[in-house]
Amino acid sequence: MTDTLPPREPSAADLRRWRRYLADERAEAAVYRDLAARRSGEERDILLALADAEGRHEQHWRDLLGDRVGRPAGTDLRTRILGLLARRFGSIFVLALVQSAEGRSPYADDDDATDAMAADERIHGEVVRGLAERGRSRLSGTFRAAVFGANDGLVSNLALILGVSASGAAPAVVLISGVSGLLAGALSMGAGEYVSVTSQRELLAASVPDPTASTVLPNLDVDANELELVYRARGMDAAEAEAHAREVLAALQVRTGSVPVQEARAALAAPVGAAPLSASAADAPADDHEAIGSGIGAAVSSFFFFASGAIIPLIPLFFRATGLTAIVLSSVLVGIALLGTGAIVGLLSGTSPLRRALRQLAIGFGAAAVTYGLGLLFGVEAG
């Protein structure tokens, strides 16, 4: 791979490949511009800069083709899908797909692409990864609950239905068992999430500095400097804590008693390495609470996520399917749902949707197969 135009006469295959690259660069630049149109501030500027970079790559292939550009070549299906999604949604899903696409750039192995272009594509992937991470962080809690709850409902209720069916139980018993499994599992998930989230919020609250402690800063003995102990308790060594506490007290003007409440709280809450008067440090615990969410909200969402998965294997039973027909139909419906949730995980994580979908399917069907086998065994023993 070189940084200059190749002196050789291009073959017909070279021209086709260059035209395809040219079309792909145009399409990728359009995707970034469409995404930027749905953003503002820094994110918009970053996306537009990426579009400009793709424009430089486009120009490289134009220079190689010269007057042989010809009719625009078609882009691949993945790039067309990206463009459609960017125009319609502009969501985290699109950024995750773009991240994956940038990571598959062929330029590193193409002698007609420059080293700078190959390096650009690698860096573009990291830029998009950073942008996608912002979205992933915003939805991580809800997404985790949705995937975990829905998959738990799918797998556990399918396993329950298959196990009871394999034991030779009557269709009515199988249906009642499935409905009971749905309600019991959904209630258990809701209660578990409520306890988990509430406990985590209580633990975070216990780590938040006492808001009333900031009111005593004006009365501290500067010579004794008790604030030093706060910083030592947060991980600073003695000398650093003493110096830092004196700086904070001086900045807060504690000798004159003119300490703004917000700054005083920030001084007490500041973690090691933070600016002495960082307001964001004082606000961090509240941000953590918001990221976790409320106990009631987590309980309700977990209940419905689990129920949404658990009801799928019951659908054939509601329509009075029995025996092997019910088992096959329930398994097919659950398999489709597992493939869907796995693909979504793959898309959001920037990895192969197919691989993640097959992993979900294998785990779900593996658990169901074990339960079905146990049901057969118990049915034979009971008989």
Rank of each mutant, 00 (worst) to 15 (best):
S308W: 01
L377D: 03
L183Q: 02
A251R: 15
L354S: 04
T198D: 12
R38E: 08
A37L: 09
A266Q: 07
R16F: 00
A243Q: 13
R87S: 08
V332I: 15
A119N: 10
A23I: 06
R56L: 13
A279T: 06
V254F: 04
A337M: 13
H60R: 15
I311G: 00
L361F: 14
R359K: 13
T75G: 04
R138I: 10
A266Y: 09
L97I: 02
A291M: 07
G297Q: 10
A150L: 12
F148D: 03
G163W: 08
S308H: 01
A267H: 05
S308P: 02
G323W: 11
Y372M: 14
A145H: 08
G178V: 05
D115A: 11
A269H: 08
S302V: 02
V98M: 15
I296K: 05
P353R: 02
S180R: 00
R104D: 13
V328L: 14
L204Q: 10
N157P: 05
F143G: 01
A37F: 03
L48N: 13
V370E: 01
E242K: 13
R44G: 03
A150Q: 12
G373N: 08
T256S: 15
H57A: 05
A132I: 04
S177L: 06
E290L: 11
A269Q: 12
D115V: 12
T75L: 01
G366E: 10
T142I: 10
L183D: 03
V127R: 10
N151F: 07
R234N: 06
P313I: 09
S11V: 03
A150I: 12
A184S: 15
V127Y: 10
A166D: 01
G375C: 08
A299K: 06
V195I: 15
D67G: 01
G41V: 08
V197G: 01
T341S: 06
L97A: 14
A37S: 15
P72W: 11
F305E: 04
A30E: 15
Y231L: 07
V328T: 10
L183T: 12
A298V: 12
A243H: 12
E43M: 02
E290D: 14
V94N: 06
H57D: 07
Y107T: 08
T322I: 02
T142K: 09
V197K: 01
S188G: 14
T215S: 10
G185K: 03
V69Y: 00
F378V: 14
R71F: 05
V195M: 14
I161P: 01
M117H: 11
G168I: 03
P10H: 09
R356H: 08
S349E: 14
F319S: 09
T256V: 09
D115N: 05
G379R: 06
E290P: 00
A36K: 11
S352I: 05
A36L: 04
P218A: 04
R16K: 13
A172F: 03
V179S: 02
E240A: 15
G141D: 08
H60S: 04
A269D: 09
M236D: 12
T142S: 10
D283K: 08
R201Y: 02
A27M: 14
G375Y: 03
L139R: 04
D120G: 07
E242Y: 06
L329N: 00
T341K: 02
A172V: 03
G309F: 06
